[in-house]
Computed example of a mutant assay.
Amino acid sequence: MIDLQPEVKWFMRPYLVNFIIQMHSSLKLKSQTLFLTWNIIDRYCAKRIAFKQHYQLIGCTALWIASKYEDKKSRVPTVKELNLMCSNVYDDSMFREMEIHILSTLNWSIGAINLEDILQLAVKYSDPDGKELLNKPLDLYKSNTPTVSAILAVSRYLCELTLYNRVYLTYQTSIIGITCFLMSCSILNMDVGSNYINEIYQIFENLMNDTKIFNMDNNEENIKPKNQNYGPFVSGFNGLDTINQIREISFNLFKSILNPSEVLIEKYTTLGVMTVVKRFIQDNDLYQIDLSLLSNDCEGETFDITSQYSIELSNLLLNFNDNSPFQISQQPLQVTNQRDLSIISTSSTDDSILDPQCDSPSNFSSFSSVSSATSYSFSLNSADYAFMNGLESKII
């Protein structure tokens, strides 16, 4: 339905994403609020005509609604604060009118599973630091150890990358979240993510085999269970079908990593995330990957997950190995189009892993800008910062 919008087009989305991310960071709102904001925006724009001059108003109002739903009352911005961030383009009454219009359009149904919830569930069930207990309240799983801090920081960066491109809207939220979690573990050279997905797949296969035997003994039609709910897979896990979706998302995330917004670069450089990501790309010679070898169409947009090259790249991105119970390839990945990797800096002060010709929006040509001196709020203390910044020397 968004394609039918007469004025709002997909190329405008990255500019609004940048603006909302900066607003969200300056207001120090919860991570859940950011992802719920975009759930509200997308659902609204799929049902109502949005005029170009109101696109920013819709985004700010959605952030206002999401903050009321997720954050403490003291964190919820006032109408004057919202209007100030929009350079006083709108009247205060317009925010209240838009709020009622959005809520009525969504039938007052605000709650939705978001990427931060999936990340928290992934940490809860995979237990990366050996200290997570399933009987703890979910709200207590907040970067309580350096290991969890690092995983969540990189995972959030990947999750925020998915807000820019429409391709991610075709996947279930839980599958995107678990893919970001798996890739973050791989980037950080941790096997906790791949071990967890291996266990889930083995449980699923055992359940299918047990069901098959039971049906055969009773001369009944063989009906295999599908879409089993395992931990963060709240939308269901369906064996190889789910694994293939994870591979596809990892390909798209890889493309997004090579061309991030400068807003995200600025936000995550201070946490050491960009240093770790750049080191992962450099150590695995991924900057010169020929993406056309992964696709099965002339535009290079549709990935062929059955090709040898695609399987090997996804194995690397997701840290799938010979111990994985699902089918993988045994041949090493051969990188083509060798280039001088000296253009990739491992310094945390270097703001770019991008090709100089990247076309990712870096400023607000359409929207008012929030101060770049904004301090960002994350659940990281000084020890966690040191851990993130020191990871570059620990990656093998």
Score class of each variant (00 low, 15 high):
residue 272 G to H: 02
residue 20 I to R: 12
residue 83 N to A: 11
residue 137 P to I: 02
residue 80 K to E: 09
residue 336 T to D: 04
residue 79 V to Q: 05
residue 320 F to E: 03
residue 173 T to A: 13
residue 87 S to I: 08
residue 48 R to E: 13
residue 253 L to R: 06
residue 13 R to A: 02
residue 40 I to E: 03
residue 218 N to G: 04
residue 395 I to A: 14
residue 29 L to P: 09
residue 55 Y to I: 02
residue 278 K to E: 06
residue 72 K to W: 01
residue 263 V to H: 03
residue 125 Y to N: 08
residue 82 L to P: 06
residue 201 Y to F: 13
residue 209 N to F: 00
residue 158 L to M: 10
residue 367 F to Q: 14
residue 309 Y to A: 10
residue 18 N to E: 15
residue 196 Y to N: 08
residue 252 N to A: 05
residue 67 S to P: 03
residue 355 D to Q: 07
residue 210 D to E: 14
residue 109 S to N: 14
residue 234 V to F: 04
residue 212 K to F: 00
residue 362 S to Q: 10
residue 276 V to S: 13
residue 68 K to P: 00
residue 181 F to Y: 14
residue 185 C to Y: 04
residue 368 S to D: 12
residue 45 C to Q: 14
residue 355 D to M: 05
residue 347 S to E: 08
residue 56 Q to L: 09
residue 2 I to Q: 12
residue 289 I to Q: 05
residue 317 L to G: 10
residue 361 P to N: 10
residue 53 Q to K: 15
residue 164 Y to W: 00
residue 394 K to C: 14
residue 24 H to F: 08
residue 223 I to Y: 03
residue 354 L to N: 15
residue 215 N to Y: 06
residue 101 H to N: 15
residue 28 K to E: 15
residue 327 Q to K: 12
residue 372 S to L: 15
residue 293 L to N: 13
residue 175 I to W: 09
residue 117 D to G: 05
residue 216 M to Q: 15
residue 253 L to V: 02
residue 311 I to N: 07
residue 116 E to H: 12
residue 299 E to G: 08
residue 360 S to I: 01
residue 242 T to K: 12
residue 341 L to F: 01
residue 333 L to C: 07
residue 190 M to H: 05
residue 212 K to H: 03
residue 122 A to H: 08
residue 12 M to T: 06
residue 292 S to T: 11
residue 367 F to V: 13
residue 120 Q to T: 15
residue 1 M to D: 11
residue 73 K to W: 01
residue 186 S to C: 09
residue 281 I to H: 07
residue 233 F to P: 03
residue 285 D to W: 04
residue 83 N to H: 07
residue 83 N to S: 14
residue 228 Q to D: 01
residue 91 D to L: 13
residue 41 I to M: 10
residue 335 V to I: 13
residue 295 S to W: 02
residue 329 S to K: 12
residue 36 L to H: 01
residue 335 V to N: 05
residue 385 Y to H: 15
residue 249 I to N: 08
residue 145 T to D: 11
residue 112 A to E: 09
residue 183 M to F: 03
residue 121 L to R: 09
residue 100 I to Y: 09
